[in-house]
C-alpha cells in the first residue's frame, strides 16, 4: 500500500496524556470485521470517544474542538497489545501522520512505519514539555523534520533529535514500502530458500 511522502510536518497536536494506551482502545476488536482498509478512523478510540448510545463523550480529547492537528501525542508505552495493523490504519485514517510518545510498543511502531505514519520517540522530559505547552495553548505547534530527524516545540524553540533507521527514513521520505524492496530481491530469496533444510 503506497502512502504519501513524509518530509516536514508542522501542526498543532491532539494531547492524550495516558500511559499504556493499548490497541484495544485505539480500535476495539469488534471493529475489525472489514475486509478492506476503509473507515477505521471513525472508530478510532471508539469506547473512549463515544457513549454506548453513540453520543460523543464530551470529556474525551477528540471531541474537544480546541484540539486538532496531524500529530497525536500519547503517554508512555503507546500502542501496546495486539498486532492489529487496524490500529495504525485508524490513526492514519483519522488524519494523523505522526504519533509522539516517550515509548512505543514494538509491533505498533513497526506497523506505523509500514503505512507511512511516523512514530517519534522523545525523552520523558520533552514529552512533559509538549503536554504543558499544548495544555497552556492549544494552538502550540510542533515541527517534525524527518530529513533532519528533529522535533521542535515552535513556541519555545526547544528541540530534540529522534532516531529512525536510515532504511525506514528513506522509505518514508519517498513513499516506498518493503514489498517494493522484497520484490526486487525475489531471486535471491528463492536461492536462499533452496538451501534450507525445511
Amino acid at each position: 500500500m503506497a502512502y504519501d511522502k513524509f518530509t516536514i510536518l508542522k501542526s498543532t497536536t491532539v494531547p492524550l496524556p495516558i500511559e499504556n494506551v493499548d490497541t484495544d482502545q485505539i480500535i476495539p476488536a469488534r471493529f475489525l470485521k472489514a475486509t478492506e482498509r476503509v473507515g477505521f478512523g471513525d472508530n478510532l478510540f471508539r469506547d473512549w470517544r463515544y457513549n454506548s448510545d453513540n453520543t460523543p463523550k464530551s470529556d474525551f480529547v477528540l471531541n474537544n474542538p480546541v484540539y486538532s492537528g496531524k500529530i497525536l501525542v500519547g503517554g508512555k508505552n503507546f500502542g501496546s497489545g495486539s498486532s492489529r495493523e487496524h490500529a495504525a490504519w485508524a490513526v492514519y485514517d483519522y488524519g494523523f501522520r505522526c504519533v509522539v510518545s516517550s515509548f512505543f510498543a514494538d509491533i505498533f511502531k513497526n506497523n506505523c512505519l509500514n503505512i507511512g505514519v511516523l512514530p517519534v520517540q522523545v525523552s520523558p522530559a520533552f514529552l512533559e514539555k509538549i503536554f504543558s505547552a499544548v495544555f497552556a495553548d492549544a494552538q502550540a505547534q510542533l515541527e517534525v523534520n524527518l530529513p533532519a530527524q528533529t522535533i521542535t516545540l515552535l513556541a519555545t524553540g526547544e528541540q530534540e533529535k529522534f532516531d529512525i533507521s536510515p532504511y525506514k527514513k528513506d522509505n518514508l521520505s519517498n513513499g516506498f514500502d518493503d514489498i517494493d524492496y522484497l520484490q526486487n530481491i525475489r531471486g535471491e530469496i528463492q536461492d536462499f530458500a533452496a538451501t534450507l533444510p525445511f
Partner: peptide, 20 residues
C-alpha cells in the same frame, strides 16, 4: 512473533519480512 497486515502481505509475496 506477531506481525501486522503489511507484513502478512510481505510474507505472502516473498516469504520474508524486514525487521531489525
Amino acid at each position: 512473533f506477531g506481525i501486522g497486515t503489511s507484513e502478512v502481505e510481505m510474507v505472502l509475496a516473498s516469504q520474508c519480512i524486514m525487521q531489525p
